[in-house]
Design a protein around this nucleic acid. Structure first.
Length: 730
DNA sequence: GTTGTGCGCTTTTTT
DNA sequence: AGCGCACAAC
């Protein structure tokens, strides 16, 4: 018998129960910070080592590439060997793998290509054009949403129920047209990956049985984020062995707005009647006070599965609440706290500034820049989403598959080579009339010699260029291919000769693409290196910046903070209309999702949690007076340490001026306090006309806004504004 | 075909 | 306020 005790070492009882559950359907309700990933990886280790299940028979699914990598890494660490052959990855990645293996059965061309949201939008715009619909009345974005929502519910255009509503009919028409275009150009969008993979398994009996048999054990992370099609796919694959081990937390479901169904958790127990449920409720992350405050918030939600996190740790600091005058004051407060933290030896990377919407990062960035404090903002444009990178890849895509109209449209005049809209419209018209690709149409139109000489030669040169590129890259290795493409397309040259800062950055990105190719290892044996790289670029957009390991303050939206933890967390902008967001306030379901978001944010904090709101916030160029978020009312007062703003907000001044001003004032704080409150200090005994005698426990702020916490012998602890409290030294 | 101007929009994000 | 996009002028 292999010794498997190392798998269980250091796990608590509930975690052990979960890891060692008998095969069969299992639902693990894993609270924030309860060791979810650890349970998941230990479970896989247990299957392999304890039950001698072959890694080949295991399917493990996550939502993000990052989570997949992390899981892979941890399992290999635990088992001490690479887990080759195990199907582990994101839903989309696995669906892609399936479709590459069985493209024929799935009704796809061998060289089908994945398009991202951006490409999808372009294609929808084209469909709109072909149907002669005005984009002003039919916003492409909305149609994109419409199409994806249907696909993620498993409905193709033909399966959407007919509606007497004219608008619905039009939307459906665009959906149909879009499907046609995808089919014609061999393109697959993200939801299509899921839908197609689902249909493949559902409709093809041979394959279904094969995979049902193969995947003896299926494990799913972040189950609360699965949408309908993902769940159906899992159900289908698990139908034979029924060993579906899902881990999730209904309280952390924050993606309902993009189709995730928390209800899948409830549905799971119905679909698999003998499901064993394990709750992981011991939190190893946050202090008692932080947890208590988070629990107080989340308990307001209805229809929860019911779970109460607890911790063995001490109470720790109270949760701090700062009422700022405006967003600048809020930012200064936050950065001052971080500075204190760093001065006391804390790491910047262990501090996170969280916000509801990305626009809020701006003020923090300005103040951080001013304070010369390194920071990193998450959630910008990612590497493979940058326009210049997408241009470059489009050259390769077109060289690879001439029918790819999305790639064609993207680069036919990028960089500009004298092919204008008039010329292109003729090509487009011809393509549509003949139902052929733009590439083919170009050839035919050129053969007709119907263009003016200038347009003709420009178009001809483009065709030559792509042919030349295609020729030159055959039998080259991937980085060389990229290099040739940058050269032949003149893309790099084009950006390099522009001296502007942005253009320089673009040129650098293009050069970075060569290194990305050099570091790339082929993920799918089925594909050649170039195809594999192109699929990788679509499926994994890559991090925003090159990995910087500098010790940085972390700035991100609440959504991107899920799954992370920090010593010190600032949850900012807690104002009605901002958080909860205006668009979620009227609908109870959406409001509850906002509340979960708040819960997620709070439970990111390990030791220190600061909540803040601004009384005035400038948003979209307008100043708004705000009300504190209702979520703040939901935290019992005694759990909060309320800090008032130190002084009224400076009206104007540049940031640098007012900032240095501020820090000066701050360093003078003890003097200011002494001015206002001579003889006062922590530990001093004071008397209050109403509450009697007590001892000063704490002092916050300076000058007129200073507040003191006095523990009165009769009335207990109170926070008082020093200027008005009429205290006297005893 | 490129460059400039004005208008409208503005939650969250992964694949 | 700031950005992207569409249309109009050069």
């Amino acid at each position: 018998m292999v010794d498997v005790s190392h798998i269980f070492d250091g796990l608590n009882d509930a975690q052990r129960d979960a890891v060692a559950l008998e095969p069969g359907p299992a639902l693990i309700i894993a609270g924030a910070g309860s060791g979810k990933t650890r349970v998941l990886t230990s479970r896989i280790a247990w299957l392999v080592e304890g039950l001698s299940i072959s890694p080949l028979s295991i399917l493990a699914v996550t939502f993000t590439n990052k989570a997949a990598r992390e899981m892979q890494h941890r399992i290999e660490e635990m088992l001490g060997v690479p887990v080759g052959g195990m199907w582990m990855g994101t839903f989309h990645g696995l669906a892609h793998r399936l479709l590459r293996h069985h493209y024929d059965e799935a009704g796809l061309p061998k060289d089908f290509q994945i398009i991202d949201n951006d490409d999808q939008l372009r294609l929808i715009k084209r469909a709109l054009k072909e149907l002669a619909l005005d984009e002003a009345y039919w916003p492409a974005k909305q149609i994109q949403w419409f199409i994806n929502a249907h696909k993620e519910e498993g409905r193709r255009a033909a399966q959407v129920s007919q509606s007497p509503d004219l608008q619905q009919q039009t939307l459906l028409g665009v959906y149909q047209q879009y499907e046609k275009l995808c089919r014609r150009f061999g393109l697959v969008d993200f939801s299509e990956l899921l839908l197609r993979a689902f249909e493949l398994v559902r409709n093809n009996e041979v394959l279904r049985q094969r995979y049902q048999q193969r995947f003896e054990h299926i494990l799913v992370d972040e189950f609360q984020d699965t949408n309908s099609i993902q769940y159906e796919w899992l159900r289908l694959l698990a139908a034979q062995h029924k060993n579906l081990f899902v881990v999730g937390d209904d309280d952390q479901s924050i993606y309902g707005w993009r189709g995730a169904k928390v209800e899948n958790i409830l549905q799971f127990e119905k679909d698999f009647p003998n499901t064993r449920t394990v709750r992981l409720e011991q939190n190893y992350r946050s202090t008692g006070n932080i947890l208590a405050a988070a629990n107080a918030i989340i308990k307001r939600n209805s229809g929860r599965l019911g779970k109460k996190l607890w911790t063995d740790d001490g109470d720790g600091d109270p949760v701090n609440l700062y009422n700022a005058y405006n967003e600048t004051d809020e930012a200064r407060f936050v950065i001052d706290r971080i500075r204190d933290w760093v001065n006391k030896g804390g790491e910047r990377a262990q501090t996170a500034i969280l916000y509801r919407s990305n626009a809020q990062s701006r003020v923090f960035e300005e103040i951080l820049l001013d304070a010369a404090m390194p920071y990193r903002v998450y959630g910008g444009l990612r590497f493979f989403e940058r326009a210049e990178i997408k241009d470059a890849l489009a050259y390769l895509r077109l060289a690879n598959s001439r029918v790819n109209d999305v790639a064609f449209e993207r680069i036919v005049n990028t960089p500009t080579r004298g092919i204008g809209n008039t010329t292109l419209d003729k090509v487009r018209e011809h393509a549509q009339a003949q139902q052929i690709s733009l590439w083919e149409a170009t050839g035919q139109v050129l053969a007709q010699k119907s263009f003016a000489a200038r347009a003709h030669s420009a178009l001809d040169a483009f065709v030559e260029l792509i042919e030349e590129l295609s020729l030159q890259i055959t039998d080259q290795n991937l980085p060389t291919q990229i290099g040739i493409m940058l050269d032949v397309s003149t893309l790099l040259e084009h950006h390099k000769k522009d001296r502007g800062e942005r253009a320089q950055a673009r040129a650098e990105n293009l050069e970075e693409l060569v290194s990305a190719a050099r570091n790339f290892s082929v993920e799918d044996e089925e594909l050649g290196p170039l195809d594999s790289f192109l699929a990788h670029a679509a499926l994994e957009a890559g991090e925003g910046q090159a990995e910087e390991w500098e010790d940085c303050v972390q700035l991100m939206s609440l959504h991107s903070a899920k799954g992370l933890e920090f010593d010190m967390v600032f949850l900012t902008g807690l104002e009605e209309g901002l958080f909860p967001h205006q668009r979620s306030i009227d609908e109870p379901g959406r409001l509850e999702e906002e509340r979960r978001l708040c819960y997620v944010g709070m439970t990111r904090a390990m030791k220190h949690l600061y909540l803040s709101h601004a009384e005035v916030r400038r948003l979209y160029g307008r100043e708004n007076h705000t009300r504190p978020s209702r979520f703040l009312d939901e935290i019992p007062e005694e759990m909060l340490n309320v800090i008032r703003a130190a002084r009224p907000s400076p009206r104007s001044n540049s940031y640098s001026n007012s900032s240095s001003n501020y820090s000066q004032k701050k360093s003078n704080a003890p003097a200011a306090l002494a001015d206002t409150l001579p003889g006062f200090g922590v530990g001093k005994s004071v008397a209050h006309p109403k509450f009697g005698e007590g001892v000063i426990m704490n002092i916050e702020g300076q000058g007129d806004y200073a507040r003191v916490q006095v523990n009165f012998s009769s009335a207990g602890a109170k926070w008082l504004v020093a200027a008005y409290a009429n205290l006297s030294v005893v």
